[in-house]
Design a binder for these strands. Structure first.
Lengths: 152, 152
DNA sequence: TATTGTTATACTCTATAACTATA
DNA sequence: TATAGTTATAGAGTATAACAATA
């Protein structure tokens, strides 16, 4: 049973390693084009949602409205997004991607696909299927743990 | 082949999800005891290495010496580590865990094992083995990509 | 009265550069 | 001349609280 414990602990170490490696790699790739993780997420959400108010973006990114202000200030200065006054609510701002911002989103998508191919090409279908199945079980347990700790 | 692309892309999304979830969960658990990820890493390395100079700690954590100063200031204020003058090199400082710091390290270890058990208990041995095997392949490819991008 | 976004303030992670004491 | 650690400064992620304009 000590063996099982060790196996499980080693498996968890692998998960940590993956998280770190994935984060570093992503961060470096983004940095080459002047982006950070948060800013890329903001572009990604704008790409996904279309023009939205800062409030909606704040909810989508799960950060404070204040932080959205800072994020957008930076992205606007870089020419990737634009603020427009909301047509019917004069308190609100509509945020949308510029042409350049849409280009950045498209690049993110392309690179993401290339990366996925690089990681998973030539894994035997049976192994791949098992991998995904177990991975999903682990993700479920992770979510359960998360909601038990902090049921938001 | 479009199907394969989608599968691979979905698998990559799972990896991202894992990284985010794992990070959030860890961060919240640590925050409950007044720790951050960097500070926990510092404690962990001190536990692993025993008393070391800040320079050694800086290399182990792969952060600048300046940042180690800040990290240790916080940990020392929290009573988890102590600085001692180095016996033979008067420029250097030896850092070691206090009794409380050793307690924190032990708690980290225990909780880590419990977490590993929660995630991987009752996964059929064959599935688990395949999972680990594919996971290692993916990690290898991740490392290859990393060293191709930035061969440090 | 409630909501949108901003100003003000603060903590943390992280880095580079300049400097002091020592080797 | 090189090394250990600190002060000074800075950018980025993140948060809370107070506030003005508007609904």
């Amino acid at each position: 049973m000590n063996t099982i414990h060790n196996e499980q602990r080693d498996a968890l170490v692998r998960l940590y390693t993956l998280a770190v490696l994935l984060g570093e790699l992503m961060e470096r790739g983004l940095a080459e084009r002047g982006l950070t993780r948060s800013r890329a997420s903001a572009i990604w959400e704008l790409h996904r949602l279309g023009p939205v108010t800062q409030r909606v973006l704040s909810d989508a990114l799960r950060v404070t409205p204040r932080h959205v202000t800072g994020l957008l200030d930076a992205l606007e200065a870089a020419g990737l997004v634009e603020r427009q006054s909301h047509p019917s609510d004069r308190r609100a701002t509509l945020v949308h991607l510029t042409e350049e911002g849409r280009g950045a989103a498209a690049t993110l998508e392309t690179e993401n696909q290339a990366f996925a191919t690089a990681l998973f090409a030539d894994i035997p279908p049976d192994d791949f299927a098992t991998f995904i199945r177990v991975f999903d079980q682990v993700l479920d347990r992770l979510r359960q743990t998360a909601s038990r700790v902090d049921p938001r």
